[in-house]
Design a binder for these strands. Structure first.
Lengths: 345, 345
DNA sequence: ACGCTGGATGTTCACGTGAACATCGTCTAT
DNA sequence: ATAGACGATGTTCACGTGAACATCCAGCGT
């Protein structure tokens, strides 16, 4: 890794400082600072003069100096793994938007793997003094112990397994998965197969648990689960086996992309959906309703998750003393479309 | 918008400073600074002692102070509109990754609209001193004049219409679109209909131009274009009209999501794909190959675009003197799958 | 007329760092 | 043995800002 700060060519892009503005407008630097920070006690005439000078010079406050002085960067760090996925990017989108409304800028870090080590390294990168708070979008560590954070930095996590350690926000995975299974059972299916997410993923575990619980509550057989890695490709691969198995008549997929892959495999095998096989997804990505057939799925409101994350985090930043570990669960309703139907007789 | 910096409760999270480390390890602050910056001339024994002290204190350099001193934040600003879209998030993902490798952190700003005003406001937010350079992921302004940037901040744009103004990187939209049309023509179609993107979008315009040019080169009739807004929903809506028109036998969609919506409408209308209608998309999103039928499409390599953007930007940051306005075009190959076939007789 | 009050404005200072320059000690060439 | 050189380390200073405190002035009550 290069050390950009040590590059001589990159130095000094001075730009006007508060002092330049002060000189031009004939006031002290402090008064300029007051104008910049919208302090109440500045004479309107003075304020105008200063604003004019700022405009003329193209002044904008030096964020580094300000951060050094105040100890706050007005910045939120966001740690994410695989930003390109629908859920992740939607969540981050909402975070950025909500943060902006609160006056914060967002610093984004992508971790190569969701392991504890990588996340910790990322946190160190954003560590102390460079960020007022941290949002961890999905920390799929297998050991959700409390994250050892530098200097009591406020944190929120989009992963409900951190309950009790850090405030968190997440969709109601358990209930959502159960609802999907119940829907298929209500249609008359004897049991429901699972196309699971990667075993080390927290949300994948939760969805599998919800699936199993619903089946057991109904006194049904719990078939062994097929394994995917969230990608459509893996759904297609697993789907080819599922499609070849005549016992498979209803499948709950741990996300919509794998469901799309499964639909692909099913079509290819000539099994009709929902005639021969019913399929339910999870997430309700924008494309879900335009798959063929339109996919019945469990909706995750990523935008709301993002908003809540920022709300919780800002609360914590504003008043670290009143810190309470809270857990917000946003509902995950079932959206019934056309990929589910009663079993063929 | 709140003013986070003025919040008294958020103040002072001191953490150890370079001075504390110096005291503990019995050297001067400057030597600690040298160790932190991996300067060559520090005795190994001294270095060890300092590193131990850093470890013990949990020291990490104050980025604000460093930025103030050096004039560089080691940060790249990224301006994006609609991060949740596939192309955008993939590009940003690659940017973040490439930036990290170069030792830069990424500051993300989402603009509410791609208009000039909003982009300019975002730029001001990231302005001077808070960012070493800027990546504008898609500036869909209708007037791609040179962006008036604060203090000669290096910029790169993922939009080829800025050629001559700012360095840019973009997929070869024109050639890609033309290739898609030629493919359909080669299959024997008389003409190709267009399901266009929003008229104010640069890439949408480019794709439409490529489509028209290919048709004209082949001496074919240029049908009027259907209009979408990039969303699958809009593709579905437009698709219902297209599906009802028996003259429509081949459609080039300006992106894959609209193509998915079109497929949906076509299935619903009972028109077979590719039997009755051939469909080509643009982007090659991960789901494209798992739509039904698997979608023939033009691939945009977003990851490469992201990488190139960072490369160009870092080049510029490192040596602003050698600034050259360059334009990188990454190829956009046609990926033939199963949604295209010769016309029914 | 005079002192007092309170708001507007100015002055001083420290935040943590790294560049420039100063110093110190050791090793080498004569 | 001594000057000179060079590498390791220390000292000083300024980067731009905002908090704390100081000052100044107008308007008020007596």
């Amino acid at each position: 890794m290069a050390a950009p700060t040590s590059n001589p060519a990159a130095r000094r892009r001075p730009g006007p400082s508060i002092g330049d503005v002060a000189r031009l407008s004939g006031v002290s630097a402090q008064t300029v600072s007051r104008v910049a920070n919208e302090a109440p006690n500045v004479l309107p005439a003075t304020r105008q003069r200063v604003l004019a000078a700022m405009e003329q010079l193209g002044y904008s406050p030096n964020r580094a100096a300000r951060a050094l002085r105040t100890g706050s960067f007005a910045t939120i760090g966001v740690v994410v793994h695989r930003l390109a996925r629908t859920g992740e990017s939607s969540t981050v989108d909402a975070i950025v938007e909500a943060a902006r409304r609160e006056g914060y800028t967002v610093n984004l870090v992508d971790v190569a793997s969701p392991s504890s080590d990588d996340v910790m390294a990322a946190l160190r990168q954003l560590s102390n003094q460079s960020v007022d708070g941290l949002v961890i979008v999905r920390a799929e560590t297998t050991t959700p112990t409390s994250l050892a954070l530098p200097g009591r930095t406020p944190v929120v996590v989009a992963d409900s397994r951190f309950v009790g350690h850090h405030p968190s926000v997440g969709a109601d995975q358990l209930a959502g998965a159960a609802r999907a299974v119940e829907h298929l059972l209500e249609l008359g299916h004897d049991t429901v197969h699972l196309l699971a997410g990667p075993p080390e993923s927290g949300p994948a575990q939760l969805r599998a648990t919800g699936w199993r619980a619903a089946l057991e509550r109904a006194g049904r057989e719990v078939p062994s689960a097929a394994q995917g890695d969230w990608s459509a490709r893996s759904g297609y691969d697993a789907g080819r086996h599922l499609a070849a198995d005549p016992a498979v008549a209803a499948v709950f997929c741990a996300n919509d992309e794998m469901a799309a892959g499964l639909l692909h495999a099913l079509h290819e095998a000539g099994r009709s959906v929902p005639g021969d096989v019913s399929v339910v997804g999870f997430d309700d990505i924008p494309l879900a309703r335009h798959l063929w057939p339109p996919l019945t799925t469990v909706r995750q409101d990523f935008a709301q998750v993002g908003q809540e994350l920022v709300r919780l985090l800002v609360e914590q930043i504003r008043d670290p003393a009143a810190f309470v570990t809270r857990n917000v669960v946003v509902p995950a309703p079932l959206i019934v479309r056309s990929s589910t139907a009663p079993p063929a007789r």
